[in-house]
Amino acid sequence: MDQVRLSGPRLTLREYAHTPQEVAALHAVLGDPDTVRHLAFEPYGFEDCADQIELYLEEAEREPRTVYRLAVRRRADGEDAPAIGTAALTLDGDRAAQLGFALRRDTWGLGYAGEITGLLCRLGFARLGLHRLAARTDPGNLACARVLTRAGFHREGRIRHDLCRAGRWLDSDQYSLLEHEWRPDPGDPARPGGGENPTPDPAAHRIPR
């Protein structure tokens, strides 16, 4: 298995483990209606989250690995602390991938969204050698749009009726970043120097399906 562990100034992205604590932490994110209102699915139940982590672990074992579903942990909380969110990078075609994430509601507004986006960019460009990263957002999620723009992503346009949720067709806005456009954050080990550049948090980036 291609183990992934990435650390920024305040956060670490790491592999999931199938434990009751991990399931409860994921349920605190994906089971919250306010958090998933910008995502492609209805709130998950506890058993749904257990099934999701089992799927994440199966995806991580596949060769070649094409899906990276990672738990988001605050470094200051300690190694055994529950995750505060979930992040995803899904390879899609020739050196391309979709990224997304969701954060627990009590951690919004602390600048974590920009750091997670930067860590996923580091995974995609510096580690996996990708050429293009893309992200789809709810057009009403203006905070997410600001995070992507500050990370260097360009809005490509509106995808009409991109997904169906609860019987309603919903549009998405698509953003992309190319490898030569990527500029690591000042605190990213992929770039010399220090300091961090916090940005507003959205409720959630759209997690790739």
Rank of each mutant, 00 (worst) to 15 (best):
C49A: 13
C49V: 02
P33W: 10
E63K: 13
E58P: 03
R62I: 01
G45V: 03
E61C: 13
A50L: 01
V36W: 07
Y56R: 04
F46S: 12
L55F: 13
E42F: 05
L55K: 14
E61Y: 07
E63W: 08
T35Y: 14
H38A: 11
R62C: 01
A40R: 08
H38E: 13
V36T: 04
A50F: 08
T35L: 03
V36G: 03
I53W: 01
C49P: 06
C49D: 07
L55R: 15
E54A: 15
R62N: 11
F41K: 02
P43F: 04
E61N: 11
E47W: 07
D34P: 01
L55G: 10
E59M: 09
A60D: 04
E61Q: 11
E47S: 06
A40K: 02
P33H: 03
H38T: 11
L57N: 10
L39P: 07
D34G: 00
E59I: 08
F41Y: 08
A60T: 04
Y56S: 03
F41A: 04
P43R: 01
D51T: 10
Q52Y: 12
E58R: 14
A40N: 09
D34E: 08
A60W: 08
R37D: 14
G45N: 09
E59P: 00
I53Q: 02
E47R: 12
E47G: 06
D34R: 04
D34K: 05
G45R: 06
H38I: 04
E54I: 12
L57R: 15
E59W: 11
P33D: 01
A50E: 15
R37N: 10
P43K: 12
L39S: 05
L57V: 10
E59G: 12
L39Q: 15
L57H: 13
A50Q: 14
R37E: 09
L55Y: 14
C49T: 06
F41N: 01
A40Q: 05
R62H: 06
L39A: 13
I53R: 07
R62E: 14
E58Y: 08
D51A: 15
H38C: 08
Y56Q: 07
R62W: 07
A40T: 12
E42R: 00
